[in-house]
Simulated assay, not measured.
Amino acid sequence: MSSAVRLIRNPQLTQAVDYAYGAAVDAPVRSLWLAGACPLDTEGRTVALGDYEGQAHQAMRNLRAVLEGEGAALTDLVRTTVYVASSDQADLVKVWNVYRGYLGGHDVPSTLLGVTVLGYDNQLVEVEAVAVLP
C-alpha cells in the first residue's frame, strides 16, 4: 500500500524530537477523519483498568482496525492527537512510548496532551487521527 503522506522535517528546527513537524499531501486523495480511538473491547467495556500502557495498546489496536477496514494503514496517518487522563508527565511518556511503537518509523505530526477526564468510565487514553489515501 502506497501512502499519499509526505512527512516534513525542517532542518532549521531541532531534530531531537520523535515526530515530524508537518505532513503534506501533494495529490488528490481520500481523507479519513477518525473519532478518538478508545480502549474499549468489542462489548464496549473499558479494558486494562488503571493501566496506561494497556489502554494505549487497546486504543492503537482499535485505531489500526478502523484504518484497515477502510483499506488504510498507520502509515497513512497525517495527524494525531494523543489524550492521556493524567497530570503526571511520566504517564504521558508511558502512553507515548506505546503509541510510537505502533507507528515505527512513521513519525506523523502529533500532539500529546494531559487532560482531566475522558468520556468513558475508567478511560485513561484516547487517540484521535486523520489519514489520507491516494
Rank of each mutant, 00 (worst) to 15 (best):
V29K: 04
L103S: 05
A72K: 08
G44T: 01
L74I: 03
G22N: 07
R30K: 14
V29C: 15
V82G: 02
R61F: 14
V47C: 06
L34Y: 07
P109N: 10
V98M: 08
M60E: 05
G101D: 00
T42I: 04
V17M: 13
E68F: 00
A16Y: 08
L92R: 09
R45G: 09
V84A: 05
W96L: 14
T42H: 11
T46W: 00
C38I: 00
H57I: 11
T81E: 14
D26S: 14
G105V: 11
R61V: 14
D41I: 13
Q15R: 15
A27F: 06
A85M: 00
A24F: 11
G50M: 05
L92C: 13
Y83T: 00
L103K: 06
A65D: 10
V17A: 14
G101Q: 01
D91V: 06
A73W: 03
G50N: 03
T80Q: 07
G36Q: 05
A35R: 02
T42P: 00
V82H: 03
R61H: 12
G50H: 07
L63E: 08
H106G: 09
D18N: 15
N62H: 06
A48D: 06
E70W: 10
T81N: 10
L74M: 07
A56S: 11
Q15D: 15
G44W: 04
R100L: 11
D88C: 05
V98I: 04
A48F: 01
L74P: 06
Y21I: 12
Y21L: 15
D26W: 02
K94A: 13
N97V: 03
T46P: 02
L40H: 10
L49K: 07
L63D: 12
G22Y: 09
D88V: 09
A56F: 05
A65S: 10
V108L: 07
T80S: 12
R64G: 10
A73H: 09
G101C: 01
Q55S: 12
P39Y: 11
